[in-house]
Amino acid sequence: MAPKDGFSVSRRDFFKTAGVGSLATGLLGPVELGAQAGVREVGPGAVPIQLTINGRRHDLTVEPRVTLLDAVRNRLDLTGVKRVCDRGACGACTMLLDGRTVYACSILAIEAQGRDIRTVESLAAAPALHPVEQAFCEHDGLMCGFCTPGLVMATTALLEKTPNPTADEARRALDGNICRCGTYVKVLEAALATKGGRRG
């Protein structure tokens, strides 16, 4: 799939900048050369990567510094999970990597290759709702909604692993997510009330 933003460096540009030699001489200077033999390096310019997101393969071209969150939001227009603290402290960007919750803001896109990445968009096709999403709506487990997709993902991961969690297990599983509107009471109610939250 071609990058949507149209700004990414073309494949030809990438090969211009990504050669081993250009890096070794350009950035590190002669002192380092001895240690660099055989090192397979890419970047710092944009490089092609392949991500498996919501069961679908995406080819995109990003610099190694681009986070999984920014790649998914800005390049693939999957904007369900949000960028809030951008430092792994709030959980608004929560995605599932091989079934486990992670902070997508703190993982490089290039590092997520070969992993099973799931975003909130994986849960249900519009206009249907996933049972967790449904429970959040029924219990009013959301207000401004900006933290909600991240909390939905954390809740989904919890229920996939622990279909009938205790209140304490639910709290602990959601402790990596911050909500400023103060929906926690209702979110926990929703998490504990979700029926069929387990996938498959």
Partner: peptide, 23 residues
């Protein structure tokens, strides 16, 4: 921005590191 090395093993990782702190 930075370049990236995906080290397959310990040897590759060590080979890709350098002596200047922080670089």
């Amino acid at each position: 921005s930075f370049a990236y090395v995906d080290a397959a093993n310990e040897q590759e990782a060590i080979a890709a590191l350098g002596t200047q702190r922080g670089r």
